[in-house]
Amino acid sequence: MNVFRILGDISHLLAIIILLVKIWKSKSCAGISGKSQILFALVFTTRYLDLFTTFISIYNTVMKVIFLLCAYITVYMIYGKFRKTSDSENDSFRLEFLLVPVTGLSFLENHNFTALEILWTFSIYLESVAILPQLFMISKTGEAETITTHYLFFLGLYRALYIANWIWRYHTENFYDQIAVVSGVVQTIFYCDFFYLYVTKVLKGKKLSLP
């Protein structure tokens, strides 16, 4: 495990915790796309099925369980506990536009044509587009609370650090995974526009609002 990988994982965890604490403290999930959170829960569920089949390390197992738990708690907060505060009107991204192509692609382009492998591939492809309902919601309402932008920043940072991790692993271990790398790069590109707004607005103390 290299420094980019561990910082990436910490950044990912921090993003998830920021979102949970924000919802919990404000007792509201306004401005948060429940659809993106459902997709992330689906991503973790389909990817971490190997919890039952392969043991990698204590770290790996613990982090997977934490990510799964946090994802389901977040979905519960949005659609259960604080349902009345959710912005379902603005969360209007059509999930089938993501799920249908992602399912098709995971059957076509995978390492092995086995159930577990196809589900793993599905989770990799789905993660690369799972944030789109959230970004769509922000572009629709034209604004985002500052704390929501911190969540997105750490989520994007996690992706960027994973790319650094892959470059490192390619040079030191001669390791790379084409499916993960291509999807990871696509995913990171989706955050570029947001990163620009984050640096030029949020870091200068302004609220993120679109013209």
Binding site: H12, I56, N60, F67, Y162, N165, N174, F175, A180
Partner: peptide, 10 residues
């Protein structure tokens, strides 16, 4: 180069 799976990653 190998084309292995990134199964040890999260």
């Amino acid at each position: 180069c190998h084309r292995r799976k990134a199964k040890d990653e999260l």
